[in-house]
Design a protein around this nucleic acid. Sequence first.
DNA 1: AAATCGGGGCT
DNA 2: AGCCCAGATTT
Length: 348
Amino acid sequence: MTTQEFQNAILKWFLVSGRDNLPWQKNISAYSVWISEIMLQQTRVNTVIPYFERFTRRFPDVRELSNASIDEVLHYWTGLGYYARARNLHRTANIVANELSGCFPSDIATLITLPGIGRSTAGAIRSIAFKKRGAILDGNVKRVLSRFAAIDGWPGHTRPLKNLWSISEELTPLRNTDSFSQAMMDLGATVCISQPKCHLCPITTGCKAFLSGTQQKYPQKKPKTSLPVKTTHFLMIYNKKLGYLLRKNKSQGIWGGLWVFPQISKMQELDLILRELGLKSIESRTLATSRHTFSHYHLDYVPILIHARELKGQTTRKTCRERWYNPNTPVSLGMPAPVVSLLEQLNN
DNA sequence: AAATCGGGGCT
DNA sequence: AGCCCAGATTT
C-alpha cells in the first residue's frame, strides 16, 4: 500500500463514516480548535462535550478568556482534571491577545512555544484550523499506526514514539490535511479500538497487524505499576454565618490553583488553625474515609466536620489565600472533585 | 528517560 | 479493580 493509496483510502472513508457533528466542528476557528484540543488531552470526547459548550459560551473568544480571572477559568474547568491545562490555557490566551494581536500563529515552531501546546496539538491546530499540512499523534493515531506498521514497544517509550511520529509525518498529505487529521482520529475512535472492527477499516490491505492476525498485540501496553496510598485529613471548618473555610493551593503541583479544605497530617494542627482564625470549635465529627485515585497514587481522605463560632470581641482573621465559601451563595472558584463532592453531600 | 499531573467511563 | 483516554511539562 503506497502513501498515496493510504491517504485516498482514509479520505474516502472519512466522507462516509467520519464524525462531523461534534460541538467543535461547527463554526471552526483557531480558538475553538485550540480549546477543544486542550480539553481533549487525556480526556474522552463524551466527557469534554458539556465542558466545551459551557466554556465557549462563557469565553467566546481569546480576548474574553484573557480578560477573565484564573479563578473563573479554573471554575469552568472544575471536574475535568489536569488543571495545569487550564492555567496554561489562560497564559496562552494572554500571550495571543496581548503579544500576537489576538491571532494564533499557524506554524508549528511558534505554536509549540505557547504554554500547553505540544507537537501533536500544534499539528491539530495547524491542520484543522488553518488547513495547512500538520501531522498529529494522539492516542487514536498511535493505536492506528502501531497496528498498521506493527510497531513494537509501548508508545510512551522513546523509540516507538519516534517511529510513530516518523510514520505520521510521512503519511500526512499536503492537501485535505484537515480531513485527514480528523479521519485518523475518527478511525482510531470508532474502528481501530480495543476490540477492532477490521471489517469496517479502509486500510486493512496494508495493515501489518491485520494481515498477520496480531491486532491484539498492538499497541503494546504500558508497563503496570501498583499505586502507592497516601492519607490526609480534610478540615471542613464550618461557621453558620461564614460557610466553609477554603484555601487556595499554590499554582504548582497537585490541584494547583484550586481551592481546597485545609489539609493536615496531625490532629494537633487543628487547634493552631482555629486559634489563628479567631474561632472556637463547638463540636467536631469525623466522617467516612473516601478514596480519590490519581494517575500515580491513591489518596485516602478523612473529612472532619468542625462547627465553629467566633470568639467574643474578636473578628475572624484570614489570609489572602483563604476565603469562606457558602454553598448557598456559590462563587466561581476552581475546586477538585472530592471538595465538590463533600460540599454537595453536606449541603443536602 | 522517567515522573508529574485528574477524573471518569468502560470492561 | 484495572485500564486508558484528541499529551505536555518538569525533573
